[in-house]
């Protein structure tokens, strides 16, 4: 079983790599590149968040804040303090991880859904700070002139170059997540999502693992946020509000809780829906809401596994979510 799984993974990641390399050949308009890049950025956040929701069974409504911390650390350090680009990104990632640890440690030691409350409050506070700490963040007008990333002489200053940069990160993050899930840690996480009590009695330190997954998912969001800041070169608080936290949660659920490839699908489908509704912005909220409700009511395992299960006719109530996590 284990080798089969790995073969399947090699196939999947190989296909992903090939698609990433050749896709730009078929894309002509700048607009589609922007959409693809946004999908990539969202995928990184969603993969991280899915580790938390799908495996630790915990909800975060504050991932916009971690995404924003990455953006603002990169932006502020490079624009205001002339920090080198990549170190600024790493500092942002470490700092975001540390903040996530401070939020996660106390709330995940408790049984129940305390994390959702803590992240909700934290997300709103960070969003307010982005607007009010004007001397650092540029306030509600935002922070402009963030330099593009560069490796040596290669400057990522157009949509195509950023496509390869962002999707390389998507590939690496997904690979990291897959490796993590196939390791001892991953087995512990699956045990936790199966039965927390059983995992605990077999010596898995459940609280500890949950905190670590939460920190990791925050760091993924931070990386994505940094990439976004250097890609768009302008950031403002409105990109990191409560609504973004809900968007990424929706992507996790539509893709399927605990499904790695589903994360890619969820981010893709919902980013496209957002873009398709760009002209009719007022329907945006309804579309997300309706999509979220329909999937939760009828396909709680996500659209990917949901459709596969319909074909395989494995639709018993009990294994809906659990099967998907294994």
């Amino acid at each position: 079983m284990n080798t089969l799984l790995k073969q399947k993974d090699i196939l999947g990641f190989g296909a992903l790599a090939v698609i990433i390399i050749i896709l730009p050949l078929f894309v002509e308009s700048k607009y589609y590149f922007i959409v693809l890049n946004v999908i990539g950025l969202n995928t990184i956040v969603v993969v991280g968040l899915n580790l938390l929701i799908g495996f630790a069974g915990q909800i975060s409504l504050g991932h916009a804040a971690f995404y924003g911390l990455g953006s603002y650390f990169s932006g502020i350090l490079t624009v205001n303090y002339g920090f080198p680009l990549w170190p600024a990104m790493v500092v942002g990632m470490m700092a975001t991880g540390a903040v996530a640890y401070l939020i996660g440690y106390p709330s995940l030691k408790l049984r129940g859904h305390y994390l959702v409350m803590a992240t909700l409050g934290f997300g709103i506070i960070i969003n307010i700070l982005m607007g009010e700490l004007e001397q650092f963040t540029g306030g509600h007008d935002g922070l402009m002139g963030i330099p593009p990333l560069a490796i040596g002489g290669l400057i990522f200053d157009n949509d195509l170059k950023n496509f390869y940069l962002i999707w390389s990160f998507v590939f690496l993050c997904m690979l990291a997540a897959r490796n993590l899930l196939n390791s001892r840690v991953g087995r512990a996480l699956r045990a936790i999502s199966g039965s927390e009590v059983a995992a605990n009695s077999l010596g898995v330190n459940t609280a500890d693992y949950k905190v670590k997954v939460f920190v990791l998912s925050a760091m993924f969001a931070s990386i994505s946020g940094s990439l976004y800041a250097h890609y768009i070169t302008f950031i403002s608080p409105s990109s990191y509000d409560f609504h973004y936290s809900i968007q990424v949660v929706t992507m996790v659920i539509v893709g399927g809780m605990g499904s790695l490839w589903g994360s890619l699908l969820g981010a893709g489908v919902l980013t496209c829906i957002s873009e398709a509704l760009h002209v009719a912005k007022q329907y945006h909220i309804i579309a997300y809401g309706v999509f979220l409700c329909l999937v939760l009511v009828f396909l709680p395992e996500g659209i990917l596994m949901g459709i596969i299960n319909i074909f395989l006719k494995k639709k018993t109530q009990q294994n809906i979510i659990k099967a998907n996590r294994q």
Binding site: Q282, F291, L292, L296, P300, Q317
Partner: peptide, 24 residues
């Protein structure tokens, strides 16, 4: 009528419903 009665699914469902109501 949600097919999964897990708490986490129902909490998400109320978030979705909230979006639908607000959008409407």
């Amino acid at each position: 009528h949600a097919r999964s009665k897990e708490i986490i699914v129902l909490i998400f469902l109320t978030i979705g419903l909230s979006e639908v109501l607000r959008g409407t």
